[in-house]
Structures are given as C-alpha cells and as structure tokens.
Amino acid sequence: MTAAAPRPLPEWTASAVSPLDAKLGLELLEVSPERAVGRAPVAGNTQPFGLWHGGASCVLAESLGSLAAHAHALTLDLVAVGVDLNATHHRSAREGWVTGTATALRLGRTLASYEVVLTGDDGQRLCTARLTCSLVPPRR
C-alpha cells in the first residue's frame, strides 16, 4: 500500500509566511486545521556551539501551530493569535533538517491547541511543544 499524496497547500499560505519564517528557511509541506507540517534547515539556525538553536525550535513550533490554527479560524470567519507556547528541548541537531508536525489537540470556537513535535533527519524527537491560540474577530 502506498502513502496518500499530500494535499496541496491552501492558496492563502503563499502570503502567510512571515519575515522571521523566511529567515528560518521554513518550507511548508502541509497545512490544514487538523495538522501542519514544515521543515527548516539546521544550517543558519544554530547557537554559537553549532547546535540547532532552541529559539529556532520555538519559532518553528509557533509558526506551524499558528498556521494550522489560522486554517481552523478561517472556517469560523475569525483569526488566530497565539496566547501560550511552551517547549521542552530533548536533544539537538548539528546538520540536516528539522521537521515539525503540529497536530490539533482541541479545535474550539474560541481556542485552538496543538502539540508540535520536532524531529531531526534521523527521526529522533528534538522538541515537544504545545501552542494555544485564541480565535478572535479580524481587525477591520
């Protein structure tokens, strides 16, 4: 049995990558209300000792969770704004790519929460994060 082909990215994601995401080198692979997947290179995102920076983990986790929450918010004519992020760093990487998968824990009418798991090229977990976004009316 072969794996299903990934869904194409929603059109709105083309303009949803922030300048910080661009500096990180974020590549979006999948975005839906239930799940977002993306990756970033270790190169250019390290701390002084050559290891993947914990702050890069937080940026990747928040970006993926926020994009998934935004996809959910759009179904309610709302926007998503982050209100809580926590991350546990388990290990680091020196090369390759870090892939993040944000999986919905709760998709409500006022809040959306995600668990975000970051792994290295070897499949080992680097970081586990949780993001909660408030769903609010857009500013007009």
Rank of each mutant, 00 (worst) to 15 (best):
M1T: 04
T2F: 09
P6T: 07
P8K: 12
P10S: 14
S15T: 13
V17W: 00
P19S: 09
L20N: 04
K23Y: 07
G25P: 04
L26C: 10
L26R: 07
E27T: 13
L28V: 07
L29E: 06
V31Y: 03
V31K: 01
S32A: 13
S32R: 05
R35C: 08
A36G: 09
A36K: 04
A36E: 05
A36R: 05
G38I: 09
A40G: 00
V42K: 00
V42F: 04
A43H: 07
G44F: 05
G44D: 06
F49I: 10
F49A: 13
G50A: 10
G50I: 05
L51K: 02
L51D: 15
L51Y: 13
L51H: 11
G54Y: 06
A56S: 13
A56C: 03
S57R: 00
V59D: 01
V59C: 02
E62A: 10
L64V: 07
G65V: 03
L67V: 05
A68E: 02
A73I: 08
L74V: 12
T75R: 12
L76P: 00
V79I: 15
V81K: 11
G82V: 01
G82I: 00
V83Q: 14
L85N: 09
L85E: 03
T88E: 09
S92P: 14
S92M: 10
A93R: 03
R94G: 15
E95I: 00
E95D: 15
V98R: 00
G100D: 13
G100P: 14
G100Q: 06
T101A: 06
T101I: 07
A104D: 02
L105D: 07
L105T: 03
R106D: 04
R106V: 00
G108N: 11
T110E: 11
T110Y: 12
L111A: 07
L111Y: 06
A112D: 04
A112Q: 09
S113C: 09
V117Q: 10
L118D: 12
T119F: 06
T119A: 15
D121K: 00
G123C: 10
G123D: 15
Q124A: 12
L126C: 13
L126M: 14
C127N: 13
A129T: 03
R130N: 07
R130E: 01
R130K: 15
C133S: 15
C133G: 09
L135V: 03
V136M: 08
P137V: 14
R140D: 04
